[in-house]
Design a protein around this nucleic acid. Structure first.
Length: 191
DNA sequence: TAGAGGATTGAT
DNA sequence: TCAATCCTCTAC
């Protein structure tokens, strides 16, 4: 868990590419290889914890790194973040897309889609496929229900593409920070 | 306690 | 381009 407790949130966001996000829901294990992430820091306006704003919703961001931050977006979608940094420093990495690697049929059943390529290509879609809901908010990421694993997928520096984050126009200049990271040429990224 | 709006998605 | 949808957050 020390991996998550560093202050380098953009470094962690890069390093999460190629790692796998697992869930076990009612005995069903599903997993996706992380191919797209975004970094958020309390130091910038894109972040829910900007300027150390502490609310009921974002409370887990202020806890120790290595926990899940799950919140409801637009009243419709659950978005999954990895809380990073030490207690009191509210940083997080949003997982925006994964490549299905286990339990694909279960994920198709949950999402009701035949198009596997579009099934997990977005932050709201991958949580639905993996069965992640707000009850998982605050869950430790070495738990039996939600966890991350290194599955031996090597990611070279050249494979990582950086660009501005999506959907945070309200953040002013901070919306231009190149804090969105994708695996170059992956067919599983959003949009 | 009311009102505005959101780290999205899929249909038009 | 637009509606869905439900809290959360802020201001009064």
């Amino acid at each position: 868990m020390t991996f998550y407790r560093r202050s380098d949130v953009t470094g962690i966001a890069r390093e999460l590419l190629g790692k796998a996000l697992f869930t076990r829901i009612n005995g069903n294990i599903t997993a996706g290889l992380i191919v797209e992430t975004e970094a958020y820091s309390w130091k910038e306006r894109g972040c829910h914890a900007w300027d150390n704003r502490r609310t009921t919703r974002n409370a887990v961001m202020f806890g120790e790194g290595g926990h899940a931050y799950v919140y409801l977006c637009y009243g419709v979608h659950n978005l999954f973040n990895v809380v990073t940094n030490r207690e009191g420093r509210a940083d997080a990495v949003l997982v925006r897309a994964v490549e299905p690697i286990q339990g694909t049929e279960t994920m198709q059943h949950r999402t009701g889609t035949k198009h596997i390529k579009r099934m997990t290509s977005g932050p709201g879609k991958l949580t639905r496929a993996l069965g992640i809901e707000r009850i998982h908010n605050g869950e430790a990421l070495d738990s039996r229900r939600v966890w991350l694993e290194d599955v031996g997928r090597e990611v070279s520096f050249r494979e990582i593409q950086a660009g501005p984050r999506i959907g945070i126009d309200y953040a002013g200049r901070d919306a231009f920070l190149p804090w969105r990271f994708t695996l170059r040429d992956s067919e599983w990224v959003s949009k």
